[in-house]
Design a protein around this nucleic acid. Sequence first.
DNA 1: TTGTAAGCGTTATCAT
DNA 2: ATGATAACGCTTACAA
Lengths: 335, 335
Amino acid sequence: MSTIKDVSRLTGLSISTISKYINGGNVRAENRSKLDEAIRALDFKVNPAARSLKTNRTMTVGILLPALDVSFFAQIVGDVEARLFKEGYNAYICSYDHDPVQELRKLSFLLEQQVDGVLLVAEHVSADQLMALPALRDGRTPLVLFDRRVEGMAADLVLVDSKEICRFAAEQLLLKGHRRIGLIMGPSDISTAWERMTGYRQAFEARGLPIDETLIRQGDYSTGAGYQLLGELMDLPMPPTAVFTTNHETTLGAITAAFERKLRIPEDLSFIGYDDTQLTQIISPPISIVLQPAGLLAAEAASLLIRRMRGDREGFPHTAMLEARLLMHPSVATV
Amino acid sequence: MSTIKDVSRLTGLSISTISKYINGGNVRAENRSKLDEAIRALDFKVNPAARSLKTNRTMTVGILLPALDVSFFAQIVGDVEARLFKEGYNAYICSYDHDPVQELRKLSFLLEQQVDGVLLVAEHVSADQLMALPALRDGRTPLVLFDRRVEGMAADLVLVDSKEICRFAAEQLLLKGHRRIGLIMGPSDISTAWERMTGYRQAFEARGLPIDETLIRQGDYSTGAGYQLLGELMDLPMPPTAVFTTNHETTLGAITAAFERKLRIPEDLSFIGYDDTQLTQIISPPISIVLQPAGLLAAEAASLLIRRMRGDREGFPHTAMLEARLLMHPSVATV
DNA sequence: TTGTAAGCGTTATCAT
DNA sequence: ATGATAACGCTTACAA
């Protein structure tokens, strides 16, 4: 690797002049061309370690997720990474594999690595645990919580209004005359799962309708769970006339189970799923889905984090609450 | 952030002694406890930039993928990241979003970041382009190619023997009497897609059986493509009696399409899919699948890369060719 | 076992 | 506009 010193030798200019030029400073036109040529010839690249040592900025961010193979996160994280990259940031993308210990350990490790900022999809970590980390407590390293809250934590937040869209979705089913509506939800200690269930409940409560608790099934948000729980619902003595699945994987599993059972949608079962999938659009009939604004979420998370890393503390703690949409398709019948 | 200097002030020991201790050197028992306490009290952490500057090692690796939301890669990358992390390496995980320009740009960028090694799932990049990168050409930065070859590139390789397992899978279908076997393959410029197709062909050729080219359908490896192409196959005047899908997403789409069309598996259509999915195991009947050894692949890739990063050049270029398995389930009938 | 001192490649201050 | 020089926090001969 060549260094500024090499460029200096080749051009006769001083190291400090060259450094300034590299960082956007001005040099005489003739020197500029000399430098450009030397830099190209030597394939000179700034040594990021040396730069970090001086500037105290690494131009890296940590993105910490419960898992990489959850499609919603996989989709978002690629987008966030691209946006950060465009601004010169490199992303350490880590999974803690739903493990509470790893969650905290990897977060600490990222902070030790001196990342300039962290985007976290939290699962088990508490506000106390977060505030015990010096870099976070002192606000030295900006943290943006993504998709899920951490109770009692004053932090920037990028969320989807899950409760409202789920209330709305359940309401649509009620309006179509459905009363027995199956809900396939996720682990209730995940804030979004809880909110989605709450929205569902609110739709019933707003109309003074009773909720049959046997129709609310909790799984682990996996495809297998979706498949399994749809089966359980349909095997009830009084099966639901509609079902609402609350994430992508679960939706896929439930659709498969419904098709396998030769249930006609919507004649035998009305269906509202969650998150876009190429599949829900093209199967027949197209499945109504709750569509989370993945692109906007990624953009919001990236730009908020970048703002903070640039030192702009305005409006902290900021909550960006984005709206999801319900795409209604013929998968819902009137009863 | 506290530095060694702070620890030095607090303990009275010299900076170099402390550095040595941090890096596994010996100090007198009494000093050891003094140090441990001071380090804890100050929450001292080594500054990685400073360390890198001296050691020329960043303890980071780059993992560059065509996309993060392809389940096979998502699964593997999490695993590889975990293994590298355990050895003290941090991973920059990047997607180039199937874009040839990004593919090369991000690779260059990772190398500029002075990563100690790179794991690459290549798509468009050529051996020439790779060898044009100084860090790779000089062997300064070890590169491991994962899952896909780059023609003419002398590099460490971690692959699955796709051709053989696909030949074997097609052979099983032939042995059961199938002659019209649909193949849903991926883009033919991806080496694995080509190999999977070649295996399929070899099974026919080995028996001197003709291949109906209309039964070979090429898609983009997406769920939507799987759905779409299965439909096309079944809409043929003479539809196949069996279908072989060659990646996870495609399998999911094709199963959905089959179920939607109320095709009975295996009575109406025999089915062999690809890659493990919770779903293929539990639907009825369970779907026969080609199972790639994801865990082994991740382990092999990580350990090979680590060996290289530690300076062990033995057996370069090494090709690790792992075997996939065919899990036969009742989704295949005898005709 | 411990300490001294040089230097990794850059940025930043202060002259010129 | 350019250059000399002192850090940044660490590792590593080399000396003690």
